[in-house]
Design a protein around this nucleic acid. Structure first.
Length: 877
DNA sequence: TGCTCCACGC
DNA sequence: GACGTACGTGGAGCAG
């Protein structure tokens, strides 16, 4: 075969997906979507791209149910098994996959993929292409020619048989054209093409070798040997002709794509990564990382300086600080870059901290800086003795506000998402895991410089997106100022009484040992209680306790299951207690001690401002948003959180039922609003409304149920979730939710409306225009759609609550400053703010804090804040 | 090192 | 009917 420079690959999409589906076991990903066909399709595609290196590429799909062939023969493809739903649900993902690879796909009403492929392959032949066709359907082999090769899947999916005219000659002794005649004679059971009864492959080939074409065979029936065969051909002449017609691939389908449009393009790695993650294709993700790193680095102009002249630093510039790891409180500061006008500078942190010109520029709020990660930058510059001010843009936050679903793992992926693809990933510069290291100076400096330049390139696009989505105010007036407030909170840190923690640790250790001894005695053997695997063996095999639930890997030993086994065996309560105390010891005693800064005995958490899909913050190193409170033993941990100054107190304020108030506001439901206007206990009120009883007749059980439903509404749990938390059947839970919605009709209306809106727009919004895209809302997959619907209902509630407390935090910080108070805001726990303050400021705070928090936004129901103070966080209850 | 299980908070 | 179902972070065990 002559090697031509243009190589076209045409893939029969349906056929390959079918092949993959039946060749691979029915794989599931963690979302319950079947993925075997998608996976098989992907691996096959990768292999083909690598081996064939096509310059042009397209995937053809069959369109709909009927084709022009059905006019010839109604029962064409009749009797074929309906596509299994497990497969059809995968087709949309195959298309997503192709989109992510930037591979064109095409379908044409009334035509099959074969016809599209046939038409294009012949056009390509004329235009001097070499073409490879990939399918599982041997029919396609009729297209083989000098410049068209047809590869048909054999067993499995990666094994292909290459049909060239020579191979067909060798295999059947026929030319490619004669394949159609062969089909006419012998038929094709898979497409329900009848052919001539009694004529199979052998006879068909024999006849064609003798006469050449079907028509000639039918004209020469008299010359054929064998009486029976003659009769059959005679009787089925018409059937044979129709069969040939059906099997003939049309070469003149009205295909509208041009070959020039099929040129192979670079994949969209961002999209691919997202898709692979969604599908759980971890092995493919790994490969992807490798490919991405190969991206060529375009040189940029940058200059290293040791100091600045005043004129170097204009009133608008991009600023970037490069750190060695993600914890900006402690990470090595490796370099700083500034993109000013058309120049990009690099300066070492040592030189930067000595430069007076630089410091005064950094601290001048009239000089605007565009950064990546405002909060981290403020902290890092703080460590260099500079108070970073005047941040007017943050690429990281902007990207989060625009679409929180795109993970913010590193600069490169965010830059690329917004069109700057010349920034290498940090991993490619530093390596990862044990191999991570600072690269040679030139590489580091260029990398740092490149980021400042990238921010400059992207800024405008981001602002336009924000503007278009009416999110500029959310970005500029809420998230950006919040970053400064959070930086301040993190930097101040919260003081920990380390001795108190250690004492608790000693006490816990003693008790754990005692419980362990008990457990071993009762079990009659020693084992690792912390190993669910070993514990499972002891409980369910040795002690023969009933198995109520299994996990993927063995027996479930979760607390709710053990709780049910309590009456069965005395060992259970010991195990539960051991678990509870063990958690306190490892996570809260040892874990907290690990992150206390030696010099100050303070903890400096990091709030992640760009992570959650709802707009909430999260907290790491340590997570101060999950310090125990519900059980007394755990709650005592809070005694270790103390004021950092003598004679100060901890002051805690929390919003009462903020989410339900938000729901009352959004839904405008009279009954729900009444609870808040009258200052009632909302769970009792719900119990009254749902069970139709008077206040004094609400039992504790009713209230508990009502509370669980309210909880479910706020967090968007399903009937299943509710059934779990109340230990009732799913049906009962569903009925319960229905009763709730009947009692609050406008809540029901809101739920219906918001789902409808999400379907229309593809996203939902909070009060302050925070957006969450919910593409799965139109999914045909029951699970995904159900999940999406709950997300649509829940996000505006939880997200609005998040908006409100964020706004309150900014206003609180302003107010403390305006009133020149010493009080420090230290922590945020979703609906709660914790301060430390001198005792003589308590009285003021008691007025200011509720006032600011309650008036952060105005809803149609009042916001209510409860507060309290004490010598430790524990005592502020 | 990455996965699973478990448990804490809102 | 669909069979796994609020969001996070972190520790321990375990397999490769």
């Amino acid at each position: 075969m002559i090697s031509l420079s243009k190589k076209l690959m045409l893939i029969d999409g349906n056929s390959i997906a079918y092949r993959a589906f039946f060749a691979l076991p029915l794989l599931n990903n963690d979302k319950g979507i079947h993925t075997n066909a998608i996976y098989g399709f992907t691996t096959m595609l990768m292999k083909l791209l690598e081996e064939e290196k096509p310059t042009h590429l397209m995937v053809a799909f069959d369109a709909g149910k009927t084709t022009f062939r059905h006019k010839t023969f109604e029962d064409y493809k009749g009797g074929r098994q309906k596509t299994p739903p497990e497969l059809s649900e995968q087709f949309p993902f195959v298309r997503d996959l192709l989109d992510a690879h930037n591979i064109k796909y095409y379908e044409l009403d009334q035509y099959e993929a074969d016809d599209i492929i046939g038409t294009l392959s012949k056009q390509a032949e004329k235009d001097g292409f070499e073409t490879v066709i990939i399918s599982g359907d041997k029919d396609l082999t009729q297209l083989a020619s000098e410049h068209i090769r047809v590869d048909i899947t054999k067993k499995g999916i990666t094994d292909l048989e290459r049909y060239t005219p020579a191979h067909i000659e060798e295999k059947y002794g026929l030319t490619p054209d004669q394949i159609i005649d062969m089909k006419g004679l012998m038929g094709d059971s898979s497409d329900n093409i009848p052919g001539v009864p009694g004529v199979g492959e052998k006879t068909a080939i024999k006849l064609l070798k003798q006469f050449g074409t079907l028509e000639k065979v039918l004209d020469s029936i008299d010359d054929i040997s064998g009486k029976k065969l003659k009769e059959r051909l005679e009787e089925n002449k018409h059937l044979a002709e129709m069969s040939k017609q059906l099997a003939t691939i049309t070469l003149t389908a009205p295909v509208t794509v041009k070959l020039t449009e099929l040129e192979k393009q670079e994949a969209d790695y961002e999209k691919l990564t997202k898709l692979y993650k969604e599908l759980g294709f971890n092995s493919l993700l790994d490969k992807l990382d490798g490919e991405e790193e190969e991206v060529e680095l375009k040189d940029i102009d940058w200059e290293e300086v040791t100091d600045f002249e005043k004129d170097d630093l204009p009133s608008q510039a991009e600023l970037y600080v490069e750190l060695y790891d993600e914890n900006y409180h402690t990470a090595d500061i490796l370099g700083i870059s500034v993109h000013a006008d058309k120049k990009t500078y690099f300066i070492s942190p040592e030189h930067a901290s000595k430069s007076k010109v630089f410091k005064s520029w950094i601290e001048d709020e009239n000089h605007s800086k565009s950064v990546y990660d405002a909060k981290g930058s403020i902290v890092a510059f703080g460590r260099l003795g500079m108070d970073l001010k005047g941040i007017d843009f943050d690429l990281l936050i902007a990207s989060y506000v625009i679409d929180a679903s795109e993970a913010a793992d590193d600069f490169a992926s965010i830059a690329k998402r917004h069109g700057a693809d010349a920034v290498p990933t940090d991993e490619s510069i530093y390596g990862k895991g044990a191999k991570k290291k600072v690269p040679e100076a030139e590489v580091l400096k260029q990398h740092t410089a490149r980021k400042a330049a990238a921010i400059h390139h992207i800024k405008e696009t981001c602002i336009q997106s924000l503007e278009k989505n009416e999110q500029l105010e959310l970005f500029e007036k809420l998230e950006l100022p919040l970053a400064t407030v959070l930086a301040e909170m993190e930097r101040k840190g919260v003081k920990v009484d380390i001795d108190r923690l250690k004492d608790m640790g000693v006490e816990l250790k003693k008790r754990l040992e005692e419980i362990q001894t008990d457990i071993f005695r009762i079990a009659g053997e020693e084992f690792n209680i912390n190993s669910p695997k070993q514990l499972g063996v002891v409980l369910f095999e040795n002690l023969k306790l009933p198995v109520l639930k299994k996990t993927k890997t063995g027996y479930s030993t979760s607390a709710d299951i053990l709780e049910k086994l309590k009456p069965e065996h005395e060992i259970i309560e010991h195990i539960l207690h051991f678990r509870q105390l063990g958690k306190l010891q490892s996570t809260y005693i040892e874990g907290l001690i690990k992150v206390i800064h030696d010099d100050s005995n303070k903890i400096h958490t990091r709030y992640n401002q760009v992570l959650t899909q709802t707009g909430r913050l999260s907290s790491t190193d340590p997570n101060l948003q999950n310090i125990p409170i519900r059980l007394e033993e755990g709650r005592k941990i809070r005694q270790a959180f103390v004021p950092s100054e003598k004679d100060w107190v901890m002051f805690a304020a929390d919003y009462s039922q903020i989410e339900l108030r938000v729901l009352a506001h959004i839904s405008d439901d009279t009954g729900l609003k009444e609870a808040f206007h009258k200052g009632m206990d909302v769970h009792t009120k719900t119990a009254m409304d749902v069970f139709g009883v008077k206040k004094e007749d609400v039992t504790s059980g009713m209230r508990r149920h009502a509370k669980a439903v309210n909880f479910g509404i706020v967090y968007g749990i399903s009937d299943y979730g509710l059934s779990q938390s109340l230990d009732i059947t799913r049906k009962e839970a569903a009925e319960f939710i229905k009763k709730y919605l009947d009692s609050y009709p406008k809540v029901k209306e809101y739920m219906d409306d918001i789902i409808h809106e999400a379907k229309q727009k593809g996203y939902v919004e909070t009060l302050l225009h925070r957006r969450r895209y919910i593409p799965e809302i139109t999914s045909r997959n029951f699970n995904l759609r159900g999940f999406a619907e709950r997300t649509a209902m829940n996000t505006p509630i939880q997200g609005t609550a998040a908006d409100i407390i964020k706004k309150a935090m900014i206003e609180m910080a302003d107010r403390l400053k305006a009133e020149s108070l010493q009080t420090r805001m230290l922590l945020q726990v979703h609906d709660e703010l914790i301060f430390e303050c001198p005792k003589d400021e308590i009285e003021k705070l008691e007025k200011i804090v509720p006032e600011v928090m309650e008036s952060a936004v105005e809803l149609s129901v009042p916001l209510k804040v409860d507060y309290s103070y004490g010598n430790t966080w524990y005592d502020a209850k």
